[in-house]
């Protein structure tokens, strides 16, 4: 990157370190921090959507819809999230390829599940075998987003469900006494007040979400855990920058990075709480 870094083997001390930390591979690691932050931002809308859908389903007057809501929230939360992180990517991948196989290769008669193999025709592969590396990574990332959304949507559904129940009944009765319709009551009185009760739960979920992002590594995305393992491992003299096993330092840095992320979030939430609970008598 810099001119002095042309001959790394002759460098020493801080110069060596500064050159070492600016190699293209390290740049890729710094870039993967953006992957983590990007994931955090990308998953919030689908999580909130699924959370709302789940919470409303649980309050539905139609029994099967209610069962669906209760089933979704309790199953996802009763099982460790890591099971879902292993299950959903491969299940979704197979589901998509299976459907594409049925549509694109309708003439292939052999079954898709052959003993211990899952065989679809070339045209049904997702993404296509010839596709650019970028598409493979984008597909992996999308699967990760969907998985996070499904798992955390269930948690959110529960929080929102509780918050909707926590709004004082008197508020809703007053709204009805004013002659508001069901819909108006919900959108003008119930929803705006619900947020205050949901905030503590949602902030907690945000923290859990942050701490779940290293699971991206399990989904095959080249995230910071991947790079920490890759770059930290011992490098022999064959490499331009030789060093012993430094993984402990890399993981230590990750630890600090996450501590910083949760600390900043906590401070931001403290402010939001103070703001949101103005004028409302909410305990703590």
């Amino acid at each position: 990157m810099f001119e002095i870094c042309a001959e790394p083997r002759s460098l020493e001390g801080l110069t060596w370190l500064s050159c070492y930390l600016t190699t293209p591979k390290h740049a890729a690691m710094y870039y993967s921090i953006l992957t983590v932050l990007g994931l955090l931002l990308a998953v919030v809308p689908p999580i909130l959507f699924l959370g709302f859908a789940g919470a409303l389903a649980r309050r539905s007057k139609i029994a099967p819809v209610r069962w669906l809501g209760v089933g979704y929230t309790s199953i996802v939360r009763g099982v460790p999230d890591i099971v879902f992180f292993l299950f959903f990517p491969i299940a979704l991948d197979q589901a998509v390829e299976y459907i594409r196989h049925k549509i694109k290769c309708a003439d292939v008669l052999e079954p898709v599940y052959q003993g211990n193999d899952f065989v679809v025709c070339q045209a049904a592969k997702m993404p296509l075998g010839i596709a650019d590396q970028f598409y493979h990574e984008a597909w992996g990332f999308s699967l990760a987003v969907i998985t996070f959304a499904i798992v955390f949507g269930a948690f959110t559904a529960n929080t929102l469900h509780g918050a909707l129940n926590a709004v004082p009944k008197g508020q809703l009765e007053t709204a009805r006494a004013f002659g508001m319709s069901e819909r108006q009551t919900f959108w003008r009185v119930h929803m705006p007040q619900m947020w205050v009760y949901a905030l503590p739960g949602l902030s907690n979920l945000w923290m859990i979400l942050i701490k779940a992002t290293p699971l991206l590594f399990l989904l095959g995305v080249k995230d910071i855990v991947y790079w920490a393992k890759e770059l930290g491992g011992m490098k022999t003299q064959v490499y331009t920058y030789a060093h012993p096993d430094w993984r402990i330092w890399y993981f230590g840095a990750l630890l600090v990075f996450y501590l910083f992320l949760t600390w900043v979030s906590q401070r931001a939430f403290d402010r939001i709480f103070a703001r949101a609970s103005r004028g409302l008598s909410v305990a703590s």
């Binding site: 942050i210 701490k211 779940a212 992002t213 290293p214 699971l215 590594f217 855990v225 920490a228 393992k229 930290g232 096993d245 993984r247 402990i248 993981f251 230590g252 990750l254 630890l255 996450y258 501590l259 949760t262 600390w263």
Partner: peptide, 16 residues
Amino acid sequence: VFRGSPLFIQFFFAYE
């Protein structure tokens, strides 16, 4: 420290 960082990273760090 233990509540602010992911358990996942704690495992990696401790192992190393």
